[in-house]
């Protein structure tokens, strides 16, 4: 464990705290971008270059842009109150504390992992570099070719589903709860904010 790992680990936790506790959704989203980027740094330090690049490319570069796009499109950047339907805060904190304690116990205690697994390969693990695009690609497109194709199918289905869900029939202006009503609501909100 090097100094860099500790440093970036600490930064990651701080950024993740920002995701959970930031009042405004956009600040949450930006914290998440920072977290994802830092996780990519950890991937790179663990020798998984290809996955690190994918992490930035897919998560930080595509998914989060989409999230921020939706936040901006809907004008959702208001601090939100705690809802009555949610788990009470103290209960959630207790539950998460217990859960984290269990995980830490599991990681730090001997004998949780099957005997010998942790030690058997630990020596040579850091020597080889199985994280290059060539290595990952070879396994991905031979051993895992069927799941790979399924993932492609899943993405296609997701695209079709997303278009179906988000598509809105064009209605004449000023009728119903369509886009125009939404815009009216937004503009009145903005006037309120300016006041």
């Amino acid at each position: 464990m090097t100094f860099a790992m500790m440093f970036f680990g600490l930064l990651t936790v701080v950024a993740a705290l920002g995701v959970v506790f930031a009042a405004k959704p956009l600040n949450s989203a930006l914290s998440l971008v920072a977290t994802l980027f830092l996780v990519a740094v950890h991937f790179a330090m663990l020798g998984a270059d290809f996955v690190a690049a994918l992490q930035v490319l897919i998560y930080a570069g595509a998914i989060m842009v989409l999230v921020i796009f939706v936040i901006m499109l809907l004008g959702l950047d208001e601090a939100s109150a705690v809802s009555k339907f949610k788990v009470p805060r103290y209960l959630a904190a207790v539950f998460c504390g217990v859960f984290l304690g269990l995980l830490v116990f599991a990681v730090s205690s001997e004998g949780i992992f099957p005997v010998g697994i942790m030690d058997s390969v630990a020596g040579g693990a850091s020597e080889s570099n199985p994280g290059s695009p060539r290595e990952v690609g070879m396994v991905l497109l031979t051993e895992f070719i069927f799941p790979f194709q399924l993932a492609a199918l899943l993405l296609l289905a997701a695209i079709v589903g997303a278009v179906l869900l988000a598509h809105e029939e064009k209605r004449p202006l000023g009728k119903g709860r369509g886009l125009s009503a939404m815009q009216q609501k937004n503009s009145s909100e903005e006037e309120l904010r300016e006041v």
Binding site: V13, A16, V20, S80, F85, C96, L103
Partner: peptide, 14 residues
């Protein structure tokens, strides 16, 4: 730690 924070967020944010 990250996983727990995520779970906490799902529970307390509305």
């Amino acid at each position: 730690v990250l996983f727990t924070l995520g779970a906490l967020g799902v529970m307390i944010r509305s």
